[in-house]
């Protein structure tokens, strides 16, 4: 039920990462944290204070950090690399491809400040291509949690799977509404937040909350809206996608990412092979971002609640043709 979801607070997802890795380090002595001069931005302060022997400062040298992590993983450690999302992906794609993905190393690539909500730093830092790049790599698990609680839960959960992982989160204060204990998060399992029959909205990251708000507005207009939090983009919960799309007959995807290569394309891939339905994207339309406040940017680049509502109305009209 949509009314079940209320924001208990506004928190940064990166803080969920920092708190998650600190809790995890207490439980698992193999966990190692690496950073490329961004320990503060990734909220590693508590980790460094209590586990200095398991913290590896790499300086502003991300390519080397990925390789060092691959070496640590080879030795049986569970390395978590930390930097901004663009320096975690496009800057080091070949290192990830060869030393981590192809070599199947248990490296957790933890990426903050992803997407437009990075804000004022502008397009150099607002990566919008990372989900696409990472989901193309064979064997890579790609997770985009939606709020603080879920980022914390995901940070801990990824230590328990033997796989390279890309974990994407952000810097903006955002509604925190999933369960505090993280029990509603299971890697690879779509989270159906609201059941409905007229349309499916599938979102990831910050836009999950936006999708919930859009759904509330749409339900007030009499529509029955299914809302799915697709926090795990790879491996994708295809069964959940097929089940929902078969029921509602149309889908809107919403993500803080380019229209090419991200969640929307992942859903389109499943739908086209199994249950083709009208599909509208809420995503950045093949352009770079710019400086501005997070909410201003989301509105300007078409990622606001009104954009989701417009996409839903359009996709339902297409279905009814």
């Amino acid at each position: 039920m949509l009314q079940d979801y209320t924001a208990s607070s506004e928190k940064e997802t990166r803080a969920g990462f920092g708190d998650g890795i600190y809790e995890l380090a207490k439980q698992n002595p193999d966990v190692v944290a690496l950073t490329a001069d961004l320990a503060g931005s990734l909220k590693l302060n508590n980790f460094i204070k209590d586990f200095p022997e398991r913290f590896v400062q790499c300086g502003i040298a991300e390519a080397n950090m990925i390789g060092v992590a691959a070496g640590l993983a080879t030795a049986g450690k569970i390395p978590y690399t930390t930097t901004f999302a663009n320096f975690s992906t496009s800057r080091v794609y070949d290192q990830i491809r060869q030393s981590v993905a192809y070599s199947h190393k248990n490296v957790k690539i933890c990426a903050s400040h992803a997407g437009l909500t990075l804000g004022e730093d502008g397009a150099t830092h607002q990566i919008l291509e990372d989900i696409g790049m990472m989901r193309m790599l064979p064997g890579m698990t790609v997770i985009v949690p939606c709020d603080y609680n879920q980022t914390k839960a995901a940070t801990i959960a990824i230590s328990k799977i033997e796989s390279p992982v890309y974990l994407r989160f952000g810097r903006v204060k955002w509604a925190n509404f999933t369960k505090e204990d993280g029990s509603d998060f299971v890697i690879g399992k779509a989270q159906v937040l609201n059941e409905g029959t007229d349309v499916t909205i599938i979102a990831c990251g910050h836009l999950v909350w936006t999708a919930l708000e859009a759904a509330r507005t749409l339900e007030a207009k009499g529509l029955s809206v299914e809302v799915i939090n697709m926090h795990t983009i790879k491996p994708l919960d295809e069964e959940a996608v097929i089940k929902s799309l078969t029921k509602t007959g149309c889908v809107v995807t919403a993500e803080e990412h380019q229209i090419n290569g991200g969640l929307g394309d992942a859903i389109a891939n499943v739908a086209s092979r199994n249950c083709p339905v009208p599909h509208e994207y809420v995503a950045v339309n093949d352009t770079f971002g710019e400086s501005g406040k997070p909410v201003q940017l989301l509105e300007k680049y078409g990622l606001g609640q009104t954009n989701i509502i417009a996409a839903v109305e359009k996709v339902i009209a297409r279905k009814q043709k």
């Binding site: 190692v32 022997e53 398991r54 590896v56 390519a63 080397n64 950090m65 990925i66 390789g67 060092v68 992590a69 691959a70 070496g71 640590l72 993983a73 080879t74 030795a75 049986g76 450690k77 390395p79 290192q95 060869q98 030393s99």
Partner: peptide, 15 residues
């Protein structure tokens, strides 16, 4: 890429 990976292994051996 190899010196980075070797450095990671050497770091692990120290730990």
């Amino acid at each position: 890429q190899g010196l980075s990976v070797a450095s990671g292994m050497a770091t692990a051996k120290k730990m």
